[in-house]
Design a protein around this nucleic acid. Structure first.
Length: 561
RNA sequence: GCGCUCGUAGCUCAGCUGGAUAGAGCGUCUGACUACGAAUCAGAAGGCCAGGGGUUCGAAUCCCUUCGAGCGUACCA
């Protein structure tokens, strides 16, 4: 637990005790103390911490909030809390001003913990899986996948910081209908490239990349598949194409800074009989019935709008059947918690997926699905409809080439997944120097520069400021910066609990702003020995925190730029 | 039709487990480089938080409703 959290906890407890004491004395009448908030007030001048306790008690106590606040304050023990002053403000907030010395304790903490600073242990080592991107291997990665990639990877990193044993997983949809379509498309392209006039399947994949794939096969094997029996030909083409596509997806994601622990093949679930086994498990539990030759899941019993087909009348399991098996398999592997990142177009799938887990005896709350709104691409002022079938989309590779990995990842991670993103390519390109990511990176480079200069001027940067020196950090800018740094563990905890990486992107922007502000108002490399050492400690701490968060967000922290 | 998500500054977005005067970036306007990096800083202007009702000490936030946008509603995935 960080210093800041310890202080907060202590004050919280003292508030509870004060209210209780007032009740015993007959000054306040309430049955049960409701949960209240102790947090930083919006306006910093108002104090370091504020609570709404008095206002929450108005109903039960039938007193004006300010009167209640007065009573609580009178009964509150202030020693050993770092509280310098408590006062009542506004509609009935109790604001606390802390003794200025508590804050500086964060510097030794950061310098000691280094890249571990910010870690919290809410996960307690539990096994947790984040599955994200899981794009169909029938084409290239597009903007929507890019968003999911940035989101999932950062979330995984945050959860790791929060004490979970995290595994990143990519589910490969290498079975089913779309693979059949893929085969037909490949076959058509193959024959066309070899001069045969064959029609392209209507529901096929029109992407240009498919032609490239086919050409590579031709280069390697020539026309040897023409004479082959149809089924065998398609299978051979698909096998090679899938491998090539997957390799491409993998290397693109690696260039985007994303490395998976597990690439899980859907086909293996069919081959091993796990899909069938899962279906019969559901049958045993009474969730299956037959109608018109197909096997249906009674998903209406599980909170769904209508029942769903699991096994088609032709005997082929649906995508849904495989997906249930897949998620059952995840829990079977021992994950306490499973998080999926899906595009919002799959939202109808959420309730029945959770319901299915419940039917299989798992806690549906252990499966958390984060829906992200799709990315709308704007080019030349117009919306570009993206679709793999039509072959019209901007790929992740192109995005990285044009906007850069850091800017692209930061752009996506800055936004709430629930918020639809309009990605104006022209704007992103033309304004790339104004992208907020550079603001943060510049702060890091600046910090590095100060440390370089310090060394050049003969100052020792391997410092460990003592209490007396740290107490010199008393300007408003220094204190704001220190507070922000002290906030990090709490920020990590909240981001992890709520599964919201964009909070950290906002945090790091705030941190950079506070540093720039400090930098412009006070010099670090000054003659005063004690103050210089204290400020160098602040500089080193800020740099460390920036680097820690940029690492989580998958953005590089340059020493120069 | 029904269901899910969204609607906040000119633009792109935060804030939504109810709290004090609704924030940031871009753009616009004023200032600051003979000081550790001006990719920066200090300041100004800009809002019926889509509209209407309700809940309460208090609503951008919760509930109802209207309007608008996106998505879903296949023996597709």
């Amino acid at each position: 637990m960080s210093l800041y959290e310890k202080i907060k906890d202590k004050i919280y407890v003292h508030l509870e005790e004060a209210a209780n004491l007032a009740r015993v004395k007959g000054q306040l009448a309430y049955d049960e103390l409701p949960p209240f908030v102790l947090e930083e007030p919006r306006e910093r001048q108002l104090g370091d911490l504020a609570t709404n306790l008095a206002m929450i008690l108005t109903k039960q106590c039938r007193k004006a909030p300010r009167d209640i606040a007065n009573i609580i304050l009178e009964n509150m023990e202030l020693t050993d809390t770092w509280i310098a002053k408590g006062e009542i403000a506004g509609p009935g907030f109790i604001n606390f001003h802390l003794d200025s010395s508590w804050l500086t304790g964060v510097i030794p903490e950061v310098l000691l913990l280094e890249d571990k600073y910010g870690s919290v242990d809410i996960g307690k080592g539990q096994k947790l899986q984040v599955e994200f991107v899981s794009a169909n291997p029938t084409g290239l990665l597009h903007m929507g996948n890019a968003r999911g990639a940035a989101l999932g990877d950062s979330l995984a990193a945050i959860l790791t910081m929060a004490g979970y044993d995290v595994s990143r997983e990519f589910y490969i949809n290498d079975a089913g209908n779309q693979i059949h379509n893929f085969a037909l498309s490949l076959e058509a392209r193959y024959l066309q490239q070899l001069g045969h006039d064959v029609p392209f399947p209507e529901a096929g994949y029109h992407g240009e990349d498919l032609i490239k794939t086919v050409r590579m096969i031709i280069e390697k094997d020539g026309d040897k598949y023409i004479s082959m029996e149809e089924e065998l030909r398609r299978e051979s083409l698909v096998r090679q194409a899938l491998e090539e596509k997957l390799q491409d997806i993998k290397s693109t994601l690696e260039d985007f800074g994303i490395f998976y622990d597990e690439w899980f093949s859907e086909q293996t679930l069919h081959d091993s009989g796990y899909v069938r086994d899962t279906t019969s498990e559901l049958e045993k539990k009474g969730y299956i019935y037959e109608k018109e030759g197909a096997l249906w899941l009674k998903s209406t019993l599980l909170g769904d709008e209508k029942d769903e087909v699991l096994i088609r009348s032709n005997g082929v399991p649906t995508y849904f059947a495989a997906d249930i098996a897949y998620h059952r398999h995840k829990f079977h592997r021992g994950f306490h918690k499973v998080i999926n990142i899906w595009g919002a177009d799959h939202h109808g799938h959420v309730a029945r997926m959770k319901g299915s887990m419940q039917a299989l005896g798992y806690n549906p709350d252990s499966l958390q699905i984060i829906l992200m709104q799709l990315v709308r691409l704007i080019q030349g002022g117009e919306v570009v409809k993206m679709s793999k079938r039509s072959g019209q989309y901007i790929t992740l590779r192109e995005l990285m080439d044009e906007v850069g990995k850091d800017a692209a990842r930061f752009y996506f991670i800055l936004r709430d997944p629930d918020s639809p993103v309009e990605f104006d390519l022209d704007l992103a390109k033309s304004q790339s120097a104004d992208n907020p990511v550079y603001y943060v990176q510049y702060a890091h480079a600046r910090l590095c520069s100060i440390l370089r200069q310090a060394t050049e001027q003969g100052y020792d940067t391997h410092i460990n400021p003592d209490k007396k020196q740290l107490s010199l950090l008393s300007s408003a800018e220094e204190r704001e910066l220190l507070k922000k740094i002290a906030d990090l563990p709490g920020e990590i905890a909240t981001s992890a609990k709520m599964a919201e990486p964009h909070r950290l992107a906002r945090y790091v922007l705030d941190l950079a702003a506070l540093f720039h502000s400090f930098y412009n108002s006070q010099r670090v490399l000054i003659e005063d020995n004690d103050l210089r050492i204290a400020r160098l400690g602040l500089v080193k701490s800020t740099k460390q925190v920036l680097a820690n968060i940029l690492g989580i967000l998958g953005v590089s922290a340059p020493e120069r730029m």
